[in-house]
């Protein structure tokens, strides 16, 4: 009975808080612009295969239209193989967003698990996990990515793993800190008293109360993953050609940068807009969760 009441009141609190957060979020113009761009990009990424044909419009070579400067027919110009850069950048949304989200999911799954265990059990589990996290964090993220991808071979899955690992320390720390504030609350004690298993307490009672800082961290992480992925792709360690991932487009365009700078300009702008959107939204989200910051 006690448990039932507990769960019920918790739900009510979460919902009204959620509404309050949403109200504050809608007041923040930057966050709303960010959110709009994110939604737009997501729709684009999901539907892009419906109106762009990979074989004829992305991979096919058109020798007649090599290096056409941006014009009405080719808004972003064409590359060294006569491919329409505009179509390629649009199609690239799919790759970059997918890598961003999957890299974040990887970091979240590992980071949240480690953070929960470290925060809940405390020393010595905490010490072991946090020392490992220290080690991963000490190695600069891009370097770590370079080493892992060059070891596993360049492919999209390996790229996601490599960048995901670099995000693990951040999410572990955030989760651990949130767990520490929650785990001594009375309702956790109540859950223990009614005899719930430790796993159930962690997943059903602690995690839902740590969700907001983790969500903010995850939003920011998507931005970081997209940036890091573009760096690795640029170094030739990303998605293999001819897939038009934005970092690979930049890498390919770099050879012609002195004469055809637009080949690098547009994919870069696409990255900036996407990353900025996630950062703006993440920022607004954090402010909405913690109104004290925005005073």
């Amino acid at each position: 009975m006690a448990k039932k009441n507990e769960v019920k009141s918790e739900k009510v609190v979460i919902r009204s808080q959620g509404r309050e957060i949403w109200r504050r979020l809608t007041k923040n113009k930057g966050a709303m612009i960010g959110l709009a761009i994110i939604i737009l990009l997501t729709i684009l990424a999901c539907t892009v295969d419906l109106f762009i044909d990979y074989d004829t419009q992305i991979a096919a070579i058109d020798a007649k239209h090599r290096f056409v400067d941006p014009c009405a027919e080719f808004p972003f110009g064409t590359d060294n193989m006569g491919r329409n850069l505009f179509i390629r950048v649009i199609y690239g949304t799919k790759y970059s967003l997918f890598i961003g989200v999957m890299g974040t999911v990887f970091a979240c799954v590992v980071g949240i698990t480690l953070g929960l265990l470290a925060g809940y059990y405390g020393s010595p589990v905490d010490d072991v996990i946090m020392r490992i996290i220290d080690i991963i964090q000490a190695i600069p993220a891009v370097m770590m990515g370079i080493v892992i991808v060059s070891a596993l071979g360049a492919s999209m899955t390996n790229l996601i793993i490599a960048i995901g690992i670099a995000g693990v320390p951040y999410l572990t720390r955030i989760t651990r800190a949130a767990v520490l504030t929650v785990k001594n609350q009375e309702y956790i004690e109540a859950a223990k008293a009614v005899g719930l298993s430790e796993a159930a307490i962690m997943v059903k009672h602690i995690l839902p109360n740590c969700v907001s800082p983790i969500l903010v961290a995850a939003t920011m992480q998507v931005a970081q993953v997209i940036l890091a992925a573009s760096s690795l792709s640029f170094l030739g360690l990303g998605v293999p050609v001819p897939s038009p991932e934005w970092g690979s487009l930049l890498s390919a365009g770099r050879a012609y940068i002195a004469s055809h700078a637009y080949l690098c300009l547009y994919p870069g702008i696409a990255i900036v807009i996407t990353v900025l959107a996630f950062n703006l939204f993440g920022d607004g989200f954090r402010d909405a969760l913690d109104p004290k910051l925005r005073k």
Binding site: L227, F234, C264
Partner: peptide
């Protein structure tokens, strides 16, 4: 929000 290498190139 900018990839450093891209800014460098630009």
């Amino acid at each position: 929000s900018m990839p450093a290498f891209w800014l460098g190139l630009m």
